[in-house]
């Protein structure tokens, strides 16, 4: 699964698309953590980066990307092109991360 290439361009340099396998996607909804929220509360006074949240969102994106790659792997793809991310807050304290792209076979 790790050998699947990801790109948000329409092609991968030096290769040719030989088969399209349709859209693949992955999503995850994450809620914030109480401990982190207390730290964030302090940071809300002095301003600056909320590292805990930055990490949380990075981890969540890794997870939804992994789900997308699993789907691509099942279809036998070796690349996912034109990848897009989207973030939406579904309720107070929770965010949904969504990633989608087109699974293809390149050579």
């Amino acid at each position: 699964m790790n050998d699947i290439q990801i790109s948000n361009l329409e092609t991968i340099p030096g290769t040719k698309i030989i088969k399209h396998l349709g859209m693949v996607q992955g999503n995850t909804v994450r809620a914030k953590h109480v401990g982190r929220d207390i730290m964030a509360g302090l940071k809300n006074i002095v301003g600056g980066e909320l590292r805990g949240y930055t990490e949380l969102l990075t981890d969540s994106r890794v997870e939804c990307t992994r789900r997308m790659l699993e789907e691509a792997h099942e279809r036998g793809a070796n690349a996912v092109l034109n990848v897009r991310f989207s973030t939406s807050s579904v309720s107070a304290g929770a965010s949904e991360l969504f990633v989608y792209g087109t699974a293809v076979i390149v050579e």
Binding site: N8, N44, V46, G47, E49, L50, Y53, T54
Partner: peptide, 11 residues
Amino acid sequence: FVTGNVVISID
């Protein structure tokens, strides 16, 4: 594929 993110808070 490269990414970068940051969460920032106002004072």
